[in-house]
Design a protein around this nucleic acid. Structure first.
Lengths: 214, 214
DNA sequence: TTCTGTGAACACGTTCACAGCC
DNA sequence: GGCTGTGAACGTGTTCACAGAA
């Protein structure tokens, strides 16, 4: 019933944010042109994307903001809150933990930071926001206790695969990793990778071609 | 002379890392099969991607690791070091500054953290690694002084557009932003966005469809 | 009319399968 | 024989342009 293409899924969060912007302004109705401009895409693409979620606009009029926001949120599965476990509370893990806790506090739906884990004894026991860091050794217990199905991997690259294996065995089905490693996971487990060096290198490529042309 | 498709450019950093792995092992030669496995792609895709950089393999034999690594690095423009300015030294900015400084120390080529900037008076003057945080007010001076063409935007979302405008005016041509905002920039300026809430929401979508199917 | 929803055309990306060279 | 490089087939994603509903 829902063959939403991956490219469309990747844009839904952007539309959600654009709709929140309109909600904040108190705008009750919008058009594909306005929404597309806010999202930084073309109007045709926006209409095509929304069409995969069903018809929620009115021809000749546009979209009702509140209704559409609810549809997009529902399509993304943000109706219930998923428990997220963060492994690795170094700079990045801490930044991410704070980020998601702020997101929750802001009324952001869909997630809840359930636990923080780290292997370093001097980090275990420290607080980040409203949570205390627990030892990495109890990873399996913590995942089970919280019923966590989503994990954020912010450990050193060297242990990332090992930690991922343990997370998957413990029941995690989605991993967001910051480690610059290709993770091997079984079918049915979803991995998304945020690789900072990679982003910079892609920018470097474009600078080079630009200076070559100019 | 170099119409390397965007999708290929996005994978070159992964190949570069796989090649570094082989260099580390002391492997002198490799094949599309081995390299593709390390990079997590198919062999045909790897060969196609490399073909855009020219022919650097030997039929019936494979690729010489050191040579290929140099070719990929050159294609990415990692021969000279670009000066990177980081604006916003909160949790994320700090994490990123540390990350890139470690990358440099590790022999990672292509970048050098040139300066850190923040608007908060109590952050200005603090050290992160080998750099002291400077006031955001002197953004233009700092970009000029360092000849920075790359910036990382890790400020609150509310000021992201304004800071981006100032960066571009000051001469920055590539921006990596962590702010959950669509940035408007003139043609010729390249923006890449890392959006953490978006990544989690995409994971949430897939969890939902998976539980629906199962 | 106005603006959505969508068939059809197009562009881009991936994979297959094999010709070509070591 | 073995592995690269690539034409051709295929699949995915984007855009155009218009039919259709309010």
């Amino acid at each position: 019933m829902t063959p939403v293409p991956p490219a469309t899924v990747a844009r839904l969060p952007i539309y959600l944010r654009a709709l929140d912007e309109l909600v904040g302004r108190g705008t009750p109705r919008t058009s594909s042109g306005e929404l597309a401009a806010l999202a930084g895409v073309g109007p045709a693409q926006l209409r095509r994307d929304l069409s995969y979620l069903g018809s929620h606009g009115v021809r000749g009029v546009g979209y009702e903001v509140a209704h559409l926001r609810a549809q997009v949120a529902a399509a993304l599965g943000l109706t219930r809150d998923l428990a997220v476990v963060i492994v690795g509370v170094g700079n990045l893990g801490q930044a991410f933990a704070t980020y998601v806790q702020d997101y929750e506090a802001d009324g952001g739906q869909g997630f809840r930071v359930a636990a923080l884990l780290d292997a370093a004894p001097d980090v275990v026991g420290t607080r980040v926001g409203h949570l205390v860091v627990e030892p990495a050794a109890s990873l399996e217990d913590v995942v089970a206790r919280e019923g966590a199905t989503v994990a954020v991997l912010a450990t050193p690259a060297g242990v990332a695969q090992e930690v991922a294996d343990r997370l998957v065995t413990a029941g995690v089905r989605s991993i967001l990793t910051f480690a610059a490693r290709v993770l091997r996971v079984p079918d049915g487990v979803d991995v998304r990778s945020v690789d900072l060096a990679r982003e910079l290198q892609i920018l470097a490529f474009h600078q080079q071609t630009r200076s070559a042309t100019t």
